[in-house]
């Protein structure tokens, strides 16, 4: 993608028209549900230098000697609460409430970059881990300093209890953004990380600068 392929005004216009993300909150486990927020309540996500201060308490699941307290993972306003579930025993995965989250500059940049960077997608629904060598390079130098080229062993795909090495077959570049968490299942076709070829770095920088300058 080149600079002239990007219609900055159209992209930013879309975000101006509806600068929110709507995040569904589902029950992480089974248990008896007690909601702790109401529609219209403001909620905050985790904070602190290490994100060690939990966000607003959203709901509790009562289980044997193991009360599960689920806190908000983002800032925003509660847009909807399933009050019909209050006090009932719920299954894992039940949609409990929706949070309307105002997008920040950083999130808009990340969203746009997802469209501009070359995505490396999950070959199968599986759990992914960076290869040992790549992980140690990322730990040492930071992800945006690590280049990869075709043939490099980049990932370990953990699928059906088997570990399979994944070799890179795209264009050379640096790992600009990582979208997966180690050990968490990623659906087939979902992007694992975004690659930026070295010659496209100025374009990426320009996008970041433009959003920062124009977004209030």
């Amino acid at each position: 993608m080149q600079e002239h392929d990007i219609d900055f005004d159209a992209i930013l216009g879309r975000y101006r028209a509806d600068p929110f993300a709507y995040r569904k909150v589902r029950t992480a486990h089974t248990g008896r549900l007690r909601c702790k927020v109401r529609e219209g309540d403001e909620v905050v996500g985790p904070s602190g230098k290490f994100r060690h201060i939990p966000g607003t308490l959203l709901y509790e699941l009562e289980r044997e000697r193991n009360l599960k307290r689920i806190t908000s993972f983002i800032n925003g306003q509660v847009a909807m609460v399933r009050s019909d579930l209050e006090g009932s025993f719920v299954e894992a995965g039940e949609h409990v409430l929706t949070i309307r989250h105002p997008l920040k500059k950083r999130e808009i940049v990340e969203d746009i970059l997802r469209q501009v960077l070359t995505p490396y997608t999950a070959p199968e629904r599986a759990k992914y881990f960076f290869s040992l060598d790549l992980q140690s390079s990322i730990d040492k130098y930071g992800q945006r300093s690590v280049s990869i080229k075709p043939g490099d062993e980049i990932l370990t795909m953990s699928l059906m209890k088997r570990d399979t090495p994944v070799y890179y077959d795209g264009e050379p570049g640096i790992i600009h953004s990582v979208y997966f968490k180690p050990g968490v299942s990623v659906d087939q076709g979902e992007p694992l990380f975004g690659i930026c070829p070295k010659d496209r770095l100025p374009l990426i920088e320009k996008i970041i600068t433009r959003v920062k300058a124009e977004w209030e």
């Binding site: 486990h29 289980r63 025993f89 894992a92």
Partner: peptide
């Protein structure tokens, strides 16, 4: 039939068993 987070989540399994 009750949906749980995982077959290896003891809290979920015991919660369903009790319920």
């Amino acid at each position: 039939a009750w949906r749980v987070a995982s077959y290896t989540d003891p809290n979920d399994i015991l919660a369903v068993a009790d319920h």
